[in-house]
């Protein structure tokens, strides 16, 4: 248990930042309790609303700075959906854009000191990934009927291999939401935990002489990790979105 207090007084609690606790009072976490997770999800929604409603209020032909950020995000995802999943996937654009914005804002707001990162929780990313999985599966069957099963039947492979490949394809299809969600949650959790571990070394200078060397090193390491985390926060949202587009392409064009 890392919650152990060592003799020197260094406190390692890298996972404490992920604890979901009620915002008001001290009771149980019920279904409708307002928790820190609720707060930071609401902040993400609020920030997105500010950017996309207040920022684009002017409807200017020559955009203001905030409006051009909104337009840049719009164009970025719109192009991604069109390039990766095809033109007919554009009807899913609002859904994909919602997911992308929620993830990217949660990731970035979670990088603020003392913040809580909703996307570092398996519960959240699993729901996002299951949502994508169900959407893709339902769309696949509605658009192609039983032809969607052709996704698992690799017609370019030798006949003898096809059942084996079909088994592998089915397994990989059902592993998709698992890897999809754990990738995002794991990345966010890992980065934050590593920063926290380095941060735990920082007060060593107050306790022992070796801190003269360790403390600056840990502060440099925190800074470097923070820079990496800014990159990861965006890349993971990008990857989640582009994988959604790839899966959607499979649903719309199941032929291998």
């Amino acid at each position: 248990m890392a919650a152990e207090e060592h003799g020197e007084g260094l406190a390692f609690h890298p996972m404490d930042q992920f604890i979901v606790s009620p915002l008001f009072g001290d009771g149980e976490v019920g279904v409708f309790t307002i928790t820190n997770a609720t707060l930071w999800m609401a902040l993400s929604v609020l920030a997105i609303a500010l950017l996309f409603i207040v920022g684009t209020r002017g409807r200017a032909i020559v955009p203001t700075r905030i409006q051009s950020i909104a337009e840049l995000a719009y164009g970025f995802i719109h192009k991604m959906v069109e390039d990766v999943a095809g033109k007919e996937a554009l009807s899913f654009f609002p859904y994909i854009f919602t997911v992308f914005l929620f993830i990217v804002f949660s990731n970035f707001l979670g990088l603020l000191p003392m913040a809580f990162t909703p996307t570092s929780h398996i519960a959240v990313t699993a729901i996002l990934a299951i949502g994508v999985f169900l959407t893709v599966t339902i769309v696949g069957f509605v658009k192609n009927g039983a032809g969607f099963l052709g996704l698992f039947w690799v017609s370019s492979a030798p006949l003898a291999l096809r059942p084996v490949l079909a088994l592998i394809e089915v397994i990989s299809y059902f592993v998709r939401p698992v890897s999809h969600s754990i990738r995002l949650a794991g990345n966010m959790m890992a980065g934050h935990a590593v920063i926290k571990v380095f941060a735990a070394f920082a007060p060593l200078i107050l306790i022992s002489g070796i801190g003269v060397a360790v403390t600056p090193l840990s502060i440099v390491a925190i800074t470097a990790m923070y820079g990496l985390e800014i990159l990861v926060a965006f890349i993971q949202a990008y990857v989640f979105t582009i994988l959604t587009c790839v899966y959607l392409k499979d649903a719309l064009h199941p032929s291998h």
Partner: peptide, 30 residues
């Protein structure tokens, strides 16, 4: 608080509920 907070299943319904609320609100805003 000792184990991984991510695996504290007691908080799952809460997170899922608020996530769905956020996503629905966000979807309609967008």
């Amino acid at each position: 608080s000792g184990g991984m907070p991510q695996l504290d299943f007691a908080t799952f319904p809460n997170q899922i509920f608020w996530l769905v609320v956020s996503l629905v609100v966000l979807y309609f805003i967008l």
